[in-house]
Each structure stands twice: as structure tokens, then as C-alpha cells.
Simulated scan of single mutants.
Amino acid sequence: MSNKHSNILVADKYRTHQTAKNFRSKNKPSQVIKGDPVQEYIDASQASATKRAYASDLRHFLTHGGKVPCTPKQLAKYLAESANDGLAVATMDRRITAIHKAHINQKRASPAHSEIVRQVMQGIRRTLGTKQRQVKPLMKDDLLAALEAIEKVHMPVRAARDRAILLVGFASAMRRSELVGVRMEHLTFSPTGLDIELPTSKTDQEKHGRTVFIPRGRGGHCPVQALMHWLKSAGIRTGHVFRSVNRYDGIAKQGLTPQSVALIVKAAMVQTGADAYNFSGHSLRAGYCTSAAEQGQPTWQIREQTGHRSDTTLAKYIRSTSRKTTPSLL
């Protein structure tokens, strides 16, 4: 390779890195103009998870030949290639928003609302449809099989953590981000069960907060007992409840990521002989909703546990199954 071509590649990589870096820095909640209350409230208007998603989307665009600024034709080509690679329509819509914000932040003309981009997305929606892939709910039989598999394949501390995540994740019906965000100061144990305080969540950006209650169960699959066993085994007294565990059963100080929940669910289901593609972290929440609905619980009562604001949103988590559940969820 000639020195000229080598310099061009280095320059391209530098520009890609700098553009993504600039976007991330402008979207970090901590990057505010001191003394400027307007900027502070603008930064607080979006959840940190949303900002991370936008930054990730922009990185994907840049590492796949995109640049800021880009032309409408370049963005349309990127979207067409993404569709051919099987990317979900909802994800493409989010990436368009991320690319649009990157242009606005740099005071550049955005290609996001151009006619060619609009036509390409219209064609993609008609060709691929807009229905999102729905993972299978983790029903009671699935959960019990996963718990049994965990005990066989993992060392004691790792097994204690994974059991607690599956049982608490199912019984609480919390979102993945809520589950991994739980800290010791959020827990209140009582003879009847466990209260988990959620200071904020995906649909509670104004931080009103809510409390999730998990009753104590009978037998060896009580979520409260599983959580207490994990905390005792890991020696956790402060900070995040759910943490990484290495191959030697060493405990990390930081908490897990939402994606970690999905990986734990998938790994457990693989050990039962199931196809990991059909399950994710959402399977725990969907499993609770589906089980509760099949037992005849009213939707308002289910939403009280899950935090859904409407029956319409809740309905997306209630999946049809051919199985009959037992009287208790666990």
C-alpha cells in the first residue's frame, strides 16, 4: 500500500473517531454548560439509555462508511443495505434519528427528512413490514427447567446469581434496565416478602418512582430466598445487587448491563435444549404477563406490577400459548 493511500485510511479513521466522540460528548448528561439552566434541562430530557443507543447507532453508521455531514443519497443507500442485512425497521428508524441529531448538533443540514430517504423507508416498511420480533415468554415450566440446568453447569456463586436473576426478574416483571439498576438501599425485606423501590424507569422520566412487591413463595423456588442466598454468597452489603461473576466465582464491584440479563436467559435456555434465538431478557417480563393473564388476573392488577401505563402496551407482552398454568405463578 502506498504512503498516500495509507495516510487517507488513517485520516478516515480519525474523522470517524472524532465524529463519534463529538456526538457522545454532546449527548452525555454530565456535559452541560455550567450556569446554563436551559442546557441542563435539555440534557435531562432524554434518558441515559436513549443517549447510549443513539451514540451506538451513530458509531454503526460511521464504521460502515457513513460520515457527518452526509447526503440524502448516502443515507438512503445505508438504509437499503441495512434492510438487506435484516435490520429491524424500528432500529432503522432510531438510527435515522441518531444521524439527524448528529447533523443538528454540528449545525449541518440533515438528510433525514429528504424525499429519497422517506421513499426508501416507505419501501422498506412495505417489503419487510413493521411488526417487531416477539421473543417467547419464559413460562413456569421453562423457568423451572432453566433453574435446574443452572445448578448443573455453574459454580455455586454464579449459580446463585443466575437463579436470583431469573426468579426475581420473573416475579417482579421488571424491565431489564430496572432489574440491573437495583441497589441494596432499594431493598426492604419483610416476613411477607420483598419491596423493591424503583426511583425511576423507562416510562417514569419525571422520577415519581414506584415500588414492586414480591411475595415469599413456597418450596425451593422462592424469589426472595433466592435473592437472599445470592447476596449472602456474594457478600454484597452495599451498591448494585446484580454483578458480574468471573470463572473463579469472583464478584465485580459494578452492576450488570441490561444486555447481560438477555445473555443469562439465553445461556440458561440453551442448557435446557431450547433455541436461544427465541428468548431474551424480555422473556422474563413477558412470561409474568402471560402467566398472570392466563390465570385471569385483571389487566389493572398486572399493570400495577409491571408499571405499564396502558392495556394497549401491556397487550404486547401477553403472548398466546397452548399451555395451562398452575394456580400460582411460582
Results as ranks from 00 to 15, higher is better:
Ser260Val: 07
Ile264Glu: 02
Met269Glu: 13
Leu284Glu: 04
Pro298Arg: 12
Gly287Ser: 04
Gly287Trp: 02
Leu284Phe: 11
Thr272Met: 03
Ala276Met: 08
Ile264Gln: 11
Gln295Phe: 02
Ala293Lys: 13
Ala286Gly: 05
Asp275Ile: 08
Gly281Ala: 08
Gly296Cys: 05
Glu294Gln: 10
Ala276Trp: 00
Asp275Asn: 15
Thr312Glu: 09
Arg285Met: 07
Ser280Asp: 14
Ala276Ser: 13
Ala276Asp: 06
Ser310Ala: 03
Asn278Asp: 15
Ala293Phe: 06
Ser260Leu: 13
Cys289Tyr: 10
Arg309Ile: 03
Gly296Tyr: 03
Phe279Ser: 04
Thr272Glu: 11
Thr272Leu: 12
Val261His: 06
Val270Cys: 04
Arg309Ser: 12
Ser310Asn: 02
Ala293Gly: 02
Met269Pro: 05
Asp275Gly: 00
Arg285Ile: 08
Leu263Ile: 15
Val265Asp: 09
Lys266Trp: 04
His308Val: 12
Ala286Asp: 05
Gly273Phe: 10
Pro298His: 06
Tyr277Asn: 08
Asp275His: 03
Gly281Arg: 08
Gly273Arg: 00
Gly273Met: 01
Ala267Pro: 00
Met269Tyr: 09
Ala268Phe: 02
Thr272Gly: 13
Glu304Thr: 11
Ser260Ile: 03
Cys289Ile: 08
Lys266Asn: 06
Trp300Cys: 04
Ala262Leu: 04
Gln297Ile: 09
Thr313Trp: 00
Leu284Lys: 02
Trp300Thr: 14
Ser291Ile: 14
Gln301Pro: 00
Tyr288Met: 12
Gln301Glu: 10
Thr306Phe: 05
Thr312Ile: 12
Gln271Arg: 13
Ser310His: 07
Pro298Lys: 07
Thr272Lys: 11
Ser260Ala: 15
Gly287Thr: 08
Ala292Trp: 02
Val270Ile: 15
Ile302Asn: 14
Thr272Ile: 13
Ser280Met: 00
Val261Thr: 08
Val261Ile: 15
Pro298Glu: 13
Arg309Thr: 05
Thr290Glu: 02
Ala268Lys: 02
Asp275Phe: 06
Leu263Gln: 10
Gln297Trp: 04
Gln301Lys: 10
Cys289Pro: 04
Gln259Trp: 01
Ala267Thr: 14
Ile302Val: 15
Gly287Asn: 01
Arg303Asp: 10
Val270His: 05
Lys266Pro: 01
Arg285Gln: 11
Val265Ile: 08
Lys266Gly: 07
Phe279Asp: 10
Gln259His: 12
Val261Lys: 06
Gly273Pro: 02
Ala274Tyr: 09
Gly273Asn: 10
Cys289Phe: 02
Leu284Arg: 08
Gly287Lys: 11
Trp300Asn: 05
Ser260Asp: 15
Ser291Ala: 14
Ala286Arg: 15
Thr272Cys: 15
Gln305Tyr: 01
Gly307Cys: 10
Gln305Leu: 15
Ala293Gln: 02
Gln259Ser: 13
Ser260Trp: 02
Ala267Gly: 12
Gly296Thr: 08
Trp300Asp: 14
Val265Leu: 07
Trp300Gly: 06
Glu304His: 10
Pro258Ile: 10
Gln259Pro: 00
Ala293Trp: 04
Trp300Ala: 10
Leu263Phe: 11
Trp300Val: 08
Ser280Cys: 02
Val265His: 07
Val261Cys: 07
Glu294Leu: 12
Glu294Ala: 07
